[in-house]
Nucleic acid binder design. Sequence first.
DNA 1: TTGTAGGCGTTATCAT
DNA 2: ATGATAACGCCTACAA
Lengths: 355, 355
Amino acid sequence: MSLFNKMPKAQKDRLVSHTPLPTLQDVADLAAVSTATVSRCLNNSGHVTEKTRLKVQQAIQTLGYSPNFGAQALAAKRTNTIGAIIPTMENAIFARGIQAFQETLAENGITLIIASCSYRPELEEEQIRSLVARGADALLLIGQSRPAATYQFLARRNIPYVLAWAHKKDSQHCYIGFDNQAAAQTITRQVLELGHRNLGVIVGLTRNNDRARDRITGIEHAIADYGAQTAPLQVIEAEYTFQEGAKALDQLLATPTPPTAVICGNDVLAVGAVKRAKQLGLAVPEDLSITGFADIEVSELIDPELTTVHVPHREMGIAAAKSLIAMLKTQTPVESHLLETRIVNRQSLGPAKPH
Amino acid sequence: MSLFNKMPKAQKDRLVSHTPLPTLQDVADLAAVSTATVSRCLNNSGHVTEKTRLKVQQAIQTLGYSPNFGAQALAAKRTNTIGAIIPTMENAIFARGIQAFQETLAENGITLIIASCSYRPELEEEQIRSLVARGADALLLIGQSRPAATYQFLARRNIPYVLAWAHKKDSQHCYIGFDNQAAAQTITRQVLELGHRNLGVIVGLTRNNDRARDRITGIEHAIADYGAQTAPLQVIEAEYTFQEGAKALDQLLATPTPPTAVICGNDVLAVGAVKRAKQLGLAVPEDLSITGFADIEVSELIDPELTTVHVPHREMGIAAAKSLIAMLKTQTPVESHLLETRIVNRQSLGPAKPH
DNA sequence: TTGTAGGCGTTATCAT
DNA sequence: ATGATAACGCCTACAA
């Protein structure tokens, strides 16, 4: 065997003109330093003379070097990647928050991987494993309700996570979100104060959605406090589309004692209901009041514009990113972060008609 | 030095009860086979007895083993990750297509990394580098216009990519999309056939958006073919929000000869314009016709519903995913894929008033 | 401050 | 069909 044949492959490649991508070694050679020094420059881990740093940077430039992801991940035991699993990318409710989340991560040199689980918990479980397998250093999850086994899995792997879009006091988990129940309770109280005594409710499918359930609870509490619902409270669950919101309204109106105000668990359903009400010749809010939840763009598009609960989407995304980054850095849990919601009064809610 | 001190760290860890995550070696030990065999099982690369396969699977189960991403990437020189860079996640125009793209990738064991570039080309360049650095095996990009250096970078790294949401004949690139110009031309012709002789145009910012430019060209061609625009063609560019669509309409109507029909480059602007028209007391389409482009959900929400160009978002996402997967598998370019658009006639376009 | 060298957990090439 | 073993490219004690 010749000397050439004994060489490591990378070295051979450098002799023949194959020229694959430059490696740390190439940079080190060109800069006439060791790979360790180059690595230190790359990771700003201090202890490098300004002069050598410049040499190294020069070499990196001329070679067009960029670290190999796999090697970096393998050696450093982290990928600088954070995963997020959201019910769906297809609707606006998560879009703005996730966008802000991603921007904040990017500012910190972290890449976001997104998966969606279509509100199916078994898929979420699978996605969590997948993202972790893909090397996600930490995770953003939506809401709290998932099997204990999932949390155990994360604990076993020591993967930091935050639960966003929800909030629970005194929990072992780190929440970055708002109090769905309290927010729903507040807007319901406002509806009641306007004289409505027969409410209807349209919410997303509660089956795997603790936020939707919390909102119903809030509505019920408000009504109980006020002691004022004259008919049985109708709660219609609907999938997350304009059309389903419209259909749900039809159901509500088909009852013997149709409501004078409809509280919706989200803006998409609310907006669909508003459109349907108008089609049916009902004036909103004169004949029927409708409220939303989330304050996404469409709530200002519909006529009349939607009175709804404003959620600080971007703030939430930013806070989630910062918390995760902190957890990664300190390797310790971080406090939950409660964000404030507020009611945006537009035109879809009005006083009950005197009778 | 004791024998213990000479051991590789992983072996030590297995002796003391530290128990980090199980490795391939652990699985091999438990199954009493070599790591090579385990690896073969994991990658279905054939030549494994059913019996040993079972043994190995058993071991994987009991250990809860999952491959280390970094190591896998380093050794295999691929990450099974595909990157997509879209202008923004925050609006619906890309959401459905990307969702389908992601689902198709997931079915093939590939993870999607998304980055957004806010329609800023220098940011896109940066994001491309970032995703590649993160180990993206291939990329989905939107539209065609970007610096030659960017394409060189991708060629140098040998990264397959497709350009989606657009189409060019006889191009060196692989397009997965539709003909923006032809689609715009078709809907414009329809408007002209309805007797309109004074059109206005509202489009997204063309500065870094070749799709928007193509649509304008299509509109201009249709008008030229028809030889029929009575006033100078007003083209207003607007950012991608309802409000900007509304403002653009105001500008169009402030001219001495306001148009009787407004062609919009996308549904968001169109819908914003419809809302504004109604606020101004104009009946749509009796006083003013408005058309959209993309056929996203809101186009059915607004009243009157929007006549617009339907784009097969999901098909496009699926096709893009399949093409990329094929390129990755065969290591050869793949043909472009032209998708058909069609006009959806709803209520926002009507005949011109006779005068 | 800088260099040396071993290890990270897979894959894949060769033998057997 | 299975096993040894050499890469893969980077990080990081530890030594100098």
